[in-house]
């Protein structure tokens, strides 16, 4: 099917097989390999993108379902090479280790902060529970989010005994 889709502000008109997932279309059809496949089954969230304003697991969306949609992926975040405040915070707080979950994690948090700019820790945890991270244990990710929302009370640090 010929798909018309707006991705990171740019219009694309492109053919894709009907049975391709949106994830595969983004990665192989459009060359946007930032979004990753972690399980192909909608569990791990590595493939999270924003579609028409909502986060979805792009491995469980067919490419043709995105016809007419507005899509945001990780590649559209940093504009002109300038990191977003969230990306800066993740960088500063060592919230990224292997990086494979990171694109999906960024999109989940980005969508979340648009509707909840001053969340509690519990709300942050709820918002990212569909994004598995095997490396960080999530703590420094949460601290990075709190930096963005201006809610850090005190520095969380490595204690020295």
């Amino acid at each position: 099917m010929r798909i018309r889709v707006r991705v990171n502000g740019r219009e694309y008109h492109q053919e894709a097989p009907d049975h391709w997932t949106l994830l595969r279309f983004l990665r192989e059809g459009l060359g946007l390999t930032g979004t990753k496949e972690g399980c192909g089954a909608g569990e791990c969230g590595a493939c999270t993108i924003i579609m028409d304003g909502r986060t979805v697991n792009s491995c469980l969306v067919l490419a043709p379902e995105a016809d007419g949609a507005t899509i945001e992926t990780i590649e559209g975040q940093a504009e002109g090479g300038k990191l977003t405040r969230l990306q800066e915070a993740l960088h500063k707080h060592h919230a990224v280790q292997c990086g494979f979950c990171t694109p999906g994690m960024v999109m989940s948090i980005e969508a979340f902060l648009r509707v909840n700019p001053r969340p509690t820790v519990a709300e942050i945890k709820e918002a990212i529970e569909g994004n598995f991270c095997r490396c960080t244990g999530y703590q420094q990710i949460i601290e990075a989010v709190q930096e963005v929302t201006g809610q850090r009370q005190e520095q969380e640090e490595l204690g020295h005994a």
Partner: peptide, 9 residues
């Protein structure tokens, strides 16, 4: 049901 991403679909 599910996670935020799953609930959105």
């Amino acid at each position: 049901l599910g996670s935020p991403q799953l609930r959105n679909r």
